[in-house]
Design a protein around this nucleic acid. Structure first.
Lengths: 211, 211
DNA sequence: TGTAAAATGTTGCAATTGCAACAATAAAGT
DNA sequence: ACTTTATTGTTGCAATTGCAACATTTTACA
């Protein structure tokens, strides 16, 4: 994950944060971040901790839209916060910077560090698109089995190994894949029985060559 | 849709295209664009026409990942082209600029028009993220009916009207929603019979207040 | 304009899934 | 350490869906 302040000196980083009217906030576990932000168009930078972006619809179905780790960003434009049905939930104690998005577009890029900042932002957002493409790729599959296998393949490709360290617990994984948890549990059992995978704790080992 | 060259003079636009090693290509209907591009990391700008980005998996299931119109962009980083299972297909005669993505990160942003260009790019990509969030929102729904209704709501919100002009034919709509076409056809019939919608040609009128 | 190709509508049926309900285990909090 | 809460595993069953097959209509194009 690229850091938004990559290649920017600490001193210039402070200048930037000042110009962008940033505020630094710390939340304990299981807090809703957005409920505490009243400003308009913002970008949040996760300095430390972990948060999930979660949508719950009128049926009570939850979907994990994104899971963010250190250096990741979120925002009114970047994450689907325009309507307020989304929650940004801390999974552990987390610190964020909140900066003003509109100020970014007003930056005078002739200064090196502004320049670098915008390029970093561009790169991060493009990474985010790739994540979303992966997610769509998975959701597009028609069976639970194919969703799981697609997820495994993507995660396996990321790390280059055949062992996947689930960033979620199984309940959350089902939400991310937009499938029923118990049905997923059943399918995972079949995959184990048929010798495709092995599960220990929250590690899944792929035993098939490719699919 | 924001134009990538918005607020950039024609003269500076030419300079930019030159610096970014652009080439201008025209394709007739039903051509694969990417098959004709051998360069590495590129961004394509659709000057005129219409193209779809389509994924076909090993089962033969197609999914329309994106549909692009004038001024929209695509690229090896922005659209999921890293692996080559994606097709960029022209739906009508289309003209594109192909520019070198890596050159963008080397631009000297002290020049006004480079500066403007990168900001435009940022805005377009953020729009693209919003589109993808919408798509995920739809795919996350568990029934065909809820996928359709979510799609209708999103499209209706975009234009502010209760009449949706399908940008797709029904076959493509089913691909976009990742559902079986005939099952979708059945569900649309039910929605008509129950008085939720009306369909004429490729226009859908919403008859319910909200859901 | 006539013919081929593509899109749409329809339906039965088997396969898959969500849901509900519950037991068992693990994790968290005091 | 003990109690409560959250997570995981399991299963039957009804609802939903994909698939296949075909008729019909629309569109493309030679």
């Amino acid at each position: 994950m690229i850091n938004l302040f990559q290649n920017i000196s600490p001193k210039n980083r402070e200048k930037l944060l000042y110009t962008l009217e940033s505020s630094r906030l710390t939340f304990s576990k299981n807090q809703l971040i957005l409920a505490n932000i009243t400003r308009g168009n913002i970008i949040g930078i996760l300095v430390s901790g972990m948060v999930q972006i979660i949508k719950t619809d009128y049926n009570g179905n939850r979907c994990i839209i994104e899971e963010l780790e250190e250096n990741d960003i979120f925002g009114t434009n970047i994450t689907p916060l325009a309507n307020m049905d989304y929650d940004i939930l801390t999974k552990e104690e987390s610190t964020v910077y909140i900066i003003d998005y509109d100020e970014i577009l007003n930056l005078d890029l002739s200064k090196d560090y502004y320049n670098q900042f915008v390029k970093n932002l561009l790169e991060i957002i493009i990474e985010k698109i790739e994540e979303k493409n992966n997610h769509i790729e998975i959701l597009t599959k028609k069976t639970i089995r194919n969703k799981l296998l697609e997820y495994f393949n993507i995660e396996s490709k990321k790390t280059g190994t055949r062992v996947i360290n689930l960033p979620f617990n199984f309940t959350n994984l089902a939400d991310y894949l937009a499938i029923d948890r118990s049905a997923m549990s059943r399918e995972l059992k079949y995959l184990k029985e048929e010798g495709f995978i092995e599960i220990k704790n929250h590690k899944i080992t792929l035993l098939y060559d490719k699919y």
